[in-house]
Design a protein around this nucleic acid. Structure first.
Lengths: 230, 230
DNA sequence: TAGTGGTCTAGACCACTCA
DNA sequence: GAGTGGTCTAGACCACTAT
C-alpha cells in the first residue's frame, strides 16, 4: 500500500476548511481520529496540521485541540532582494553610480539608529540604481565602521554597497519598514521626477548580534509596486 | 539522557552559519554526520535543517547535499490584518463610516479585476476607517455580487465590510500590492490632508477558487508605516 | 487530572540528481 | 549507479492546559 503524503493531507484538510465542513473557530477532529480516517500514522497528520497552523489557518492547543482560525491572519511574504536582481528580474539592464561618499559624523537620528557613540564617524553613501539607464531607486546608506571597517577597502564600483554587504557580512537580523513620502527637491532630481511626487520608501536597519551594521533608506522611482500572493 | 531538541540544533547551526564556520555557498556536513555530532536521530537534524532551508539560509538538494545560501533571500512577513485590529492594537479607538454605497456597473478596469461580464453590476463601497475619530484609512471596495450576494443583506454598521467579508467568506487566495500615490482631491478631503500628499496604498484582490470576490484599494492616512522583522 | 498536541527515535524505503 | 535528502511508521514520553 502506498502511504499517503502529509502534503496530500494538508491539501485535503485545507479543502475541508474552505468548504465550511468545520465552522470558523470550531474544533476539528484530533490527530488520532484523523490518522485513522486517512489511514496513516499520527506523525503524518501532525505534520500536515502543523503546516496549516504555520499558515495561520488553524490554532492548536494542547488539551484544547485544534480549531479553525476565526480571523485568518494570512501573512504576505516579501523577498528582500538585492536591487540588481530586482532590476534584472524585470528584464532590464542594471547599473549604479555613487553620488556621494564620505566618512563623517552623522546626525543624531542616524547616530541613534546605528547605536554610535557621540562624534563617532560613519560611512555615508548615496547611490543611484538604474534600470535601462532610467533611475530605479535612490539609496541613502550609513554604515557603522566599527562593525564593518573592511568596506572602506571594498571597490564598490562593480558591486553596489547593497550587494557587497549582503555577500560579505554573514547573516544578520534586521527590521524593514515601508512607507510613502513626498519627494524632496534633491531626491526628485536624482530620480528625474518632480518635487512632491509620492515615492515608495523602504527603510531597513541591519544588526549582527547587538551590533548595528547599516541603516538604509531606499526611495523607489514613481510607479514602483511591491506585490505578493496571500 | 535528555534528548536534544531540533530547535536547539536549529539555533546552534544558525550560529555556525553566522560565525562563518562554513563559507557562503559552501557544503555543510550531511544529516548523518550532524546526527552523530549532536547525538540524535537523523530525523531530528532533518527537521532543523528543513527549518533553516525554509527561512532561506540553506539550500538543500538530494545527492548534492546541503549548502549555505549565497544570497540570503530573507523574506519579510507581514500580517494582513483586519483594520479594526490594526487600530485597536495601536491603542486607539476604532470607528468607521460608510461614505458611499451603490450597486452599479463598474468601470472597465474593475470589471476586469472582478472578472465580471459586461454590464454586470457590482457593489461599490467607500468606507472611512478612523482611529480616535482621526481618519486612519480610506477604503474603496468593489464586491462581486455573483460570488457574494449575501452581502446586500448584511448590516455593515457594526462590522465594516472588511471584517464581514473576512469572517463570513471561507478562506481564499489573493494578491496584495503596496505602492505610493499622491492624494487626489477627493481622497485628501476624506483623510483630512492636503492634495498631493504621499499616501501609502494597499491594493488587494481576493479569490475563491477561480471566482473573484472583491477588489479593494486602501489609502492610509499620512504617516502610516508598515514594519516587519527580517 | 486527564486529554491533547509536541517531539524524539530507530528503522525503512523512496526520489532525485550528480558524476 | 550511488549518495543525499524526503518522508512514513510505530511507539514512546513529555508539556501544556482545560475542566
Amino acid at each position: 500500500m502506498t502511504p499517503i503524503s502529509y502534503q496530500k493531507i494538508r491539501t485535503h484538510i485545507f479543502g475541508r476548511i474552505q468548504s465550511g465542513e468545520w465552522e470558523l473557530g470550531g474544533l476539528i477532529p484530533g490527530e488520532i481520529a484523523l490518522a485513522k480516517e486517512y489511514g496513516c500514522a499520527r506523525t503524518t497528520v501532525n505534520r500536515a496540521l502543523q503546516a496549516l497552523a504555520d499558515e495561520g489557518l488553524l490554532i492548536r492547543k494542547r488539551k484544547g485541540g485544534t480549531r479553525v482560525c476565526q480571523t485568518p491572519l494570512r501573512h504576505a511574504k516579501f523577498q528582500i532582494q538585492i536591487i540588481r536582481k530586482q532590476v534584472v528580474a524585470s528584464g532590464r539592464a542594471y547599473g549604479h553610480h555613487i553620488l556621494h561618499r564620505s566618512v563623517t559624523v552623522p546626525g543624531p537620528d542616524i547616530q541613534e539608529r546605528l547605536n554610535l557613540k557621540a562624534k563617532h564617524k560613519a560611512l555615508h553613501l548615496q547611490t543611484l540604481h538604474t534600470a535601462n539607464t532610467e533611475p530605479f531607486a535612490f539609496e541613502d546608506r550609513w554604515v557603522n565602521l566599527e562593525a564593518i571597517p573592511d568596506i572602506l577597502n571594498a571597490p564598490l564600483t562593480d558591486q553596489s554597497a547593497n550587494e557587497w554587504l549582503v555577500k560579505t557580512v554573514p547573516f544578520s537580523r534586521g527590521t524593514v519598514e515601508f512607507c510613502a513620502e513626498n519627494a524632496s527637491e534633491e531626491i526628485a532630481n536624482h530620480l528625474r521626477t518632480s518635487i512632491n511626487t509620492a515615492l515608495f520608501v523602504l527603510k531597513r536597519a541591519t544588526w549582527i548580534d547587538a551590533k548595528s551594521i547599516t541603516s538604509v533608506r531606499l526611495f523607489y522611482a514613481p510607479g514602483y509596486t511591491l506585490s505578493s500572493e496571500l
